[in-house]
Amino acid sequence: MTILDLDDFETDFWKDVDKRATWDEIIPGELRDTRPVTLTQEVIARYAKGVGEDNPLYFDEEYAKTTIYGGIIAPPSIHILLMFACTTTEDWMRSPGTINAGQNWSYHVPIRPGDTITMRGTALDRFIRKDRMFAVHENTFTNQHGEVVCTGRGQTIRPA
């Protein structure tokens, strides 16, 4: 388990690029290597501020206690940060030149400070259409209680 520290978050998408699976090497059904990460209240607040969220539900514990959530929660879009935090720099989804061709997400249980999130990610399919290489992928995020916090399926156009 890793406590997520945004100051240590790897943003160099070229790091370890030679170790990543190419489109030809992506095997549908094969699980991606992932690691659990624990979110802190600081990470939730920094993420929310970074994406322009100003809802006190993400920052103010006293306010958050008065809501149906009973405390601070993370913005639903934090799954994007988690997708990269839960994977290594060798993950094929990090390949420079990858284009998001669409995605759908479902949110189930809010993520809270102190939650340890585990991601199960896999490629479902890969295909070529109009000379473009596509990969279809699915991700499921669960908390330390085994509750699904969000699920998503998407397609990316892969670099040649």
Rank of each mutant, 00 (worst) to 15 (best):
D60I: 09
Q41F: 02
D125G: 05
G146I: 11
D91T: 09
V109P: 03
L6C: 06
P76H: 05
C86D: 03
P75H: 06
K65L: 12
P56K: 14
T98V: 15
Q41Y: 00
Y58Q: 08
R126C: 01
T140L: 09
R153P: 00
N104Y: 06
E62F: 06
A135F: 02
R158C: 14
A74K: 02
G152H: 05
S95N: 09
L39K: 03
Y69A: 09
F9I: 04
E25C: 02
K15S: 14
L39G: 07
I117V: 14
Q41L: 12
G121L: 03
L4Q: 03
P96Y: 11
G50C: 09
P36I: 00
G146E: 08
I72E: 10
Q103P: 04
D33G: 03
N104D: 12
H108G: 00
F134H: 11
R94F: 01
Q41S: 14
F141A: 01
P113Y: 04
L6V: 09
M119N: 09
D131Q: 14
R94A: 10
H79M: 10
R94W: 13
I3E: 14
I72S: 08
E25W: 04
T67H: 09
N100G: 10
N55F: 05
T140P: 02
E42I: 07
P159R: 10
T151L: 00
C150G: 05
I73A: 04
V51L: 04
T142Q: 11
P159Y: 08
G50V: 10
D5F: 00
R35S: 14
D91P: 03
T142P: 01
E62C: 04
G70W: 05
V17A: 15
T140Q: 12
I80F: 13
T67E: 04
T98N: 11
V136L: 13
E147L: 09
R94G: 06
D91A: 15
E147A: 15
T11E: 12
T122D: 00
C150W: 05
R153E: 10
F9E: 03
T118E: 12
K130D: 15
I157F: 11
Y58W: 06
W23E: 07
I80N: 08
G71A: 10
G146L: 08
D12Q: 06
R20Y: 12
A48E: 08
L31S: 11
A85S: 14
D16F: 07
D54E: 07
F13M: 13
D60N: 15
D115S: 11
G71N: 08
G52V: 11
W23V: 09
T2H: 12
H79V: 13
V51K: 03
T156P: 00
H79T: 09
S77A: 15
E147N: 10
T140F: 00
D115P: 12
L4C: 02
F141P: 00
T151F: 01
V149T: 14
R126W: 04
I73Q: 06
